[in-house]
Amino acid sequence: MTSGPEPEIRDALLGAVPSLRAFAISLCGQVDRADDLVQDTLLRALSHIDRFERGTNLNAWLFTILRNLFHSEYRKRRREVEDPDGSYAGRLKTQPEQGARLDFEDFRSALAKLPAEQREALLLVGASGFSYEEAAAICECAVGTIKSRVNRARSRLANLLAVDDVGDLGPDNMTRAALQAAG
């Protein structure tokens, strides 16, 4: 079992609490936050008590720790954006990865529900980038047939995925290409 600080240091730490608390309140203006700062200061001081030089001013050392903690947290909070209702997060340009993964799984499931000829035509034209003429040659059918299959596949996918507008599409380029490939 480890022993705590020596009795005179323990008493000096406890004696400094009212002054530390008053200083913390003056820095942050909130009693609860000030109490947290004092507690963090004491914890930090106790964990680094070996760095305290005997014969120097303990209160000055504690006030320095408190001040440094306050400024470190202030800098950290300044970089953080408070967003209680999620409106800021909703305007972010980068979508979370898990959403794209779920969208892709929905897309794969909907794609599997298409008739084989429509799925093949859509993948050739929309995802693989072949022209209608090239896709028609690959499928050994008329260009009009490929255009019709791609159009039906796009409409069916949009219906299955509840996509009413191109803006409803997720950030996934493969999904977007498959649904709106130009011909």
Rank of each mutant, 00 (worst) to 15 (best):
T2G: 14
P5D: 07
P5Y: 09
P5M: 11
P5V: 11
P7L: 12
E8I: 00
D11E: 15
D11W: 07
A12I: 01
P18C: 12
S19C: 06
L20C: 03
A22M: 07
F23R: 15
A24I: 07
I25G: 00
S26G: 15
L27I: 05
C28G: 03
C28M: 10
G29R: 05
G29M: 13
G29S: 10
Q30E: 15
V31M: 10
R33T: 10
R33E: 15
R33C: 08
D35N: 13
D36K: 12
D36T: 11
V38F: 08
V38L: 06
L43D: 03
L46C: 14
L46D: 03
H48W: 01
I49F: 07
D50M: 00
R51N: 08
R51H: 13
F52V: 03
F52K: 03
E53M: 02
G55H: 09
T56H: 12
T56W: 03
W61V: 09
L62G: 05
F63M: 04
R67L: 14
L69Q: 13
H71P: 03
S72R: 06
E73C: 04
Y74A: 13
R78E: 14
R79W: 04
R79F: 11
E80F: 06
V81F: 06
E82M: 08
D85I: 00
D85Q: 05
Y88F: 15
Y88E: 10
A89H: 06
A89V: 11
G90Q: 10
K93W: 08
T94A: 09
Q95V: 12
P96H: 09
E97N: 03
A100N: 06
A100G: 08
E105H: 14
E105S: 08
E105Q: 15
F107I: 01
S109K: 09
S109Y: 09
A110R: 02
L111D: 13
K113Q: 12
K113T: 03
L114D: 05
L114F: 05
L114K: 04
A116D: 06
A116C: 04
E117T: 14
E117S: 12
E120T: 14
A121N: 09
L122W: 02
L123W: 04
L123Y: 02
S128R: 15
S128C: 11
S131I: 05
E133N: 07
E133L: 11
E134C: 00
A135G: 11
A137E: 13
A137D: 14
C139M: 15
C139G: 02
C139V: 05
C141V: 13
C141D: 05
G144A: 09
K147L: 06
S148T: 03
V150Q: 03
N151S: 14
R154Y: 02
R154Q: 10
R156T: 14
L157Y: 00
L157F: 02
A158P: 00
A162S: 13
D164T: 13
D164N: 15
G167F: 09
G167M: 10
L169E: 05
G170S: 15
G170A: 09
G170E: 02
G170D: 14
P171M: 08
R176S: 09
A178T: 07
